[in-house]
Amino acid sequence: MTKLLLSIHVLAAILVVGPIAVAASLFPRYGRQAVSAGPEPDARAGGIAALLHRICRGYAVVGVAVPVFGIATALQLGVLTDAWLLTSLALTALASALLALAILPGQQRLLAPAGSGGGSGGGAPESTAARLSMLTGIFNLLWAIVVVLMIVRPGSTTGA
């Protein structure tokens, strides 16, 4: 059962977090192009930005499976109270909060002028896009740290 849970956890992490990381990283470029095209919005860039936002939003919902299966695996392995796992859970919660409370709303704000034909969308498009780039970088860095913790597992008896 542990191998099945671990396999589902790893597959979910790869197939869910990976697309969010890529889509969120690409979004600022296309979001900026969509709203900074002068008097006429760039419809192609706007469509791409909207698709990238839908990917982030949709995969974020499915992404709940990653920590759920991770916790189930940790329970099976008896490592739920290990410091490396608790740190990973805290970083995962932080990355999830960053996505839900800052990245997705920021993407929505940047898309608002493209879809409504004008307006500020909650800030200048350049500053919103720059902020999204920074937040996405932090989000991706948090996940990279979690991956390293999952592989290295400080205190592990496997010798890895």
Rank of each mutant, 00 (worst) to 15 (best):
G159Y: 08
V66G: 02
Y59G: 00
Y30M: 01
A97V: 12
L89D: 03
H9A: 07
A72Y: 01
L75C: 05
T128H: 02
L86D: 05
A24H: 01
T92A: 15
V64L: 14
L110N: 05
V17D: 00
S156I: 04
A124V: 06
Y59I: 00
L86M: 13
A34M: 11
A102S: 14
A102I: 06
L98F: 07
A129C: 10
V17M: 12
T158V: 11
R153K: 15
R131M: 10
E126K: 07
T158Y: 10
I103Q: 01
D42A: 12
V66T: 04
A97Q: 11
I138L: 15
T2M: 11
G122E: 09
S7C: 04
A12C: 12
A74I: 04
L91C: 11
V10T: 06
L94G: 12
V66M: 05
G58Q: 08
A49C: 09
M134V: 15
A130N: 13
A43W: 05
L85M: 13
T157S: 13
G137M: 11
G63P: 05
A114V: 06
G38S: 11
A160I: 13
Q107K: 09
G117D: 07
T73Q: 00
M134I: 13
A21M: 14
V66F: 04
W143D: 03
G63D: 06
S127A: 14
V62I: 15
E126T: 13
G106F: 01
Y30E: 04
R131E: 12
A100N: 12
A129E: 05
V10L: 14
L142C: 15
G119E: 09
Y59V: 07
Q76W: 02
V17W: 07
Q108N: 11
F27Q: 03
P19K: 02
G38Q: 12
L111K: 02
I145K: 01
G78L: 10
R44F: 09
